[in-house]
Design a protein around this nucleic acid. Structure first.
Lengths: 230, 230
DNA sequence: CCACTAACGGGACTGAAGTTCCGTTAAGAT
DNA sequence: ATCTTAACGGAACTTCAGTCCCGTTAGTGG
């Protein structure tokens, strides 16, 4: 899935990735981001992208071919730009920082619509979906350490899945963005962080095959729910 | 905001909503659902819908005009079909039932892709987004009572927002469907339910202006998560 | 049951998305 | 510095989604 096959090896942009080719790619991805943020995925058209990027229409069709493939490449680009991450002393502090970062991103006039569009594109094409999953995997991995720290400090039960905790912070905010339509305000971010922290402390994110939490007396949620590894 | 204005009042299908018109709508919505589930929103085309529904191409264009408008109408239709809801005795039992219902829906070979497509469409058009929000509002409202019961039983703190708890159950599953790509299996459903229950017990979903939980300090989840031994 | 007209549907038309062709530009190798 | 050819880009061409026209069918009210 990851390494390019023989077919893709002869695609344009691989033999001479320097100078002009790189400039064209940057301009096109920039234009694609702008167009997606402005009009949404449905009204994305490659001719418009070419005009905005001031490159030949033919070039865009040859190198990317479809709108979903272009979005997939955009996601690869986005995954490479990682954000600086702050570190407070406590789990809740870190999760709140993460939640507020996501909150600001999703309400940003450019980023919010862009994320909506990118997710829409991913629902239409498996390769684009793969690219999106990778993007989130890298983003989540950047924040996982703060959960690992919390486990080491004894704030969370052994065997808690750090990635799952971080995803739990984002999930309600994305649900607002895409499904419920409820406002994505700082209060929502606080709530998301608090809920994830509480659930994590209660042992809701322990891996299925993790050691039983005998000494780490966690709340009633864990007591009632024995995660049957089936 | 919602009620139809003068402009929409003269749209086809309103003056004579009986017999043929209703049959055409049913056939078209059915065909639209099939097409969305099969190909995704990006490849949805109204000519194809007309062929599948065995109605005139012109009819589809006249009554709905755009793919997003058709999806919006489909969502109105989907909102009208409510699902039967079971009732166990406990909060966790009810939340797990809800989580498993969502899990089964999102992994269903037809429903899963359909929901993806419908959400993609909603990102591209405000009216469709409104229709989607309404759809979820009705679905969430159907399940909210079980949270209200839990509050009455003293399982959850006063002032807990029932809708928010139900949304918290769905959110991680939708995040898997649309963003992370992690599997949506029964274990994920259990986890989602357990996390929502734990967070709710800890008071994470109390309304901002709700009475301070001094006496209502609900049991061990709220108080007992303190890592005493840390 | 009949008249009226809302709504349907076939077919021609149009404009723009996407493809193909081929000459031009510049990246990378020697 | 020079050569090779990967990659770009203008322009003509093709295809088909979306529109328009107008005759036909069938709800609805009298």
């Amino acid at each position: 899935m990851a390494t390019e096959g023989a077919a893709e090896a002869q695609e344009p942009g691989r033999a001479r990735p320097g100078g002009r080719t790189a400039r064209v790619r940057a301009a096109v991805l920039q234009a694609a981001g702008d167009a997606l943020a402005e009009h949404g995925f449905a009204y994305l058209d490659l001719g418009d992208i070419a005009r905005r990027a001031e490159v030949g229409r033919t070039t865009v069709y040859r190198r990317w071919g479809t709108t979903t493939a272009l979005v997939a490449d955009l996601l690869v680009d986005m995954a490479e730009q990682s954000l600086p991450r702050t570190e407070s002393g406590s789990l809740l502090g870190d999760l709140r920082a993460n939640a507020h970062l996501v909150q600001r991103t999703l309400t940003d006039p450019r980023q919010g619509p862009l994320f909506k569009a990118v997710i829409a594109a991913a629902t239409c094409d498996p390769d684009t979906a793969q690219a999106l999953h990778r993007f989130y995997r890298t983003r989540i991995a950047e924040w996982a350490p703060c959960v690992t720290r919390a486990i080491e400090r004894g704030e969370l039960p052994e065997g808690t899945d750090p990635h799952e905790v971080i995803r739990a912070v984002s999930a309600p905010l994305y649900h607002r963005l895409l499904a419920s339509g409820e406002p994505i305000d700082p209060a929502a971010a606080d709530q998301a962080a608090a809920a994830a922290a509480a659930a994590a402390r209660a042992g809701a994110y322990r891996l299925p095959h993790s050691p039983a939490p005998s000494s780490t007396a966690v709340g009633p949620a864990a007591a009632g729910h024995r995660p049957d590894g089936h």
